[in-house]
Amino acid sequence: MASQLKVGTALPFGVRDEQGKLLLARGQVIHNETQLAVLLARGLYADQEELRAAKDGRTSAADGQRRKLTLFDLWDQAVPRLERLHKSIDEPGFAARCDEFAMQLVELMSRDLDIAIFLSVRQDARRLPMYGLTHALHTALVCQLLATRIGWPPARCGSLVKAALTMNLAIIELQGRVAATGRITEAQRAQIQQHPTRAAEQLRDAGVADEDWVQAVLQHHEQVGGGGYPHQLAEVGEAAAALRLADVFLAKISARADRPALPIQDAARQLFAQSQGNAAAAAIIKEYGIFPPGQVVQLASGEQAVVVRRGASLQTPIVAAITDKSGMPTTTTLRRDTAQPGYAIKAAATDLALAQRVPPERLYGLAE
């Protein structure tokens, strides 16, 4: 089957992972070698009827009865869609396409914010080559959350989201290579130092007239009082400062080849201290809470569980148990309300191996 997957060619069948999760639907295109490598690394499966139909050159009987796409599928599809958007920067209408993509992404977030947060917390280590793209999507999520909580008007929120999606235009592929290998050369380091300037230039060349958007991209690595890059500015725009905080927070909680993800609680403490109580930092911390969706926890009952919903308070989310009271893995997941003393959270779990094997669709009741 792998031999039938070719860059730039429409898929003759849908590709799924070992849990049956749809990665790419029949007819979608693999756009580059990096995306192909990620797919191959995940392990590929296809429906036997679709495979036979592809070989015979006929239409599968299942074409009209396809499994309804879940929100997890739609988030997965957002990654190659963003890559196509970036690659179209030299084509007319780029700004309008960014507007459309950003609006669709915000709509996807609004359909289930807990799932959106879950995906930003529980990232798939096998997708490190795509880190630049997934990081942009997750940073856009955090920007939308913080801007909404602060009370920014929709147009200003939109500019910040688009800045998050395009802040690393100049180094998207480089980000993936560095995240996957943990190695960086001096030439690559210099490229990273200049990427805000290059990205802003690309946006202006593409006809982007929204200066709030462009300035946020240009300044998103600057620090108030100096010390940032590329221009060591002493004064930084509010949007750029917010974007930087979102960017830094997501980087802290994302694993790379050379380091593990920082626990949410530690990342939140560092963010608040480093920002000196900035309103945007406080908004991020309030949205994610102490135990956000995707966090693995140990319960008073003895069960290990994964947070799936934010609760009435920061300390009492709704979780899905993935072990029984003796710590043995279960074949089903049961919802637990951690506001109940018997299921109170005792600590964040340290052994994440089991949780990483449980499909998120099962945690949310979308699959057995």
Rank of each mutant, 00 (worst) to 15 (best):
A242Q: 00
Q304E: 15
A367N: 09
I284G: 10
R259A: 09
Q356P: 10
E18D: 15
I117P: 03
I253L: 03
R81Q: 15
Q77N: 02
K55W: 15
A240E: 08
L5V: 05
G43K: 08
P12G: 02
G132E: 01
A268M: 00
R244F: 06
G237I: 11
L354M: 02
R111Y: 07
G227L: 10
S88Y: 04
A179S: 10
I290D: 15
A305E: 04
Q194G: 05
H195D: 01
V297S: 00
R198Y: 11
A140M: 05
R336L: 02
T331Q: 15
K252Q: 15
L218P: 00
D47K: 10
A10Q: 14
D56E: 14
E83V: 12
P80A: 04
A240F: 02
D114A: 06
Q219H: 06
L262D: 08
I253Q: 09
S254P: 06
A300H: 10
L44P: 02
L128T: 10
F249D: 07
T59L: 15
A242I: 01
D258P: 02
L24R: 11
Q223E: 11
L145V: 00
T197V: 14
A300I: 04
S313W: 09
Q232F: 15
V297F: 05
A95W: 11
G327K: 06
L243R: 05
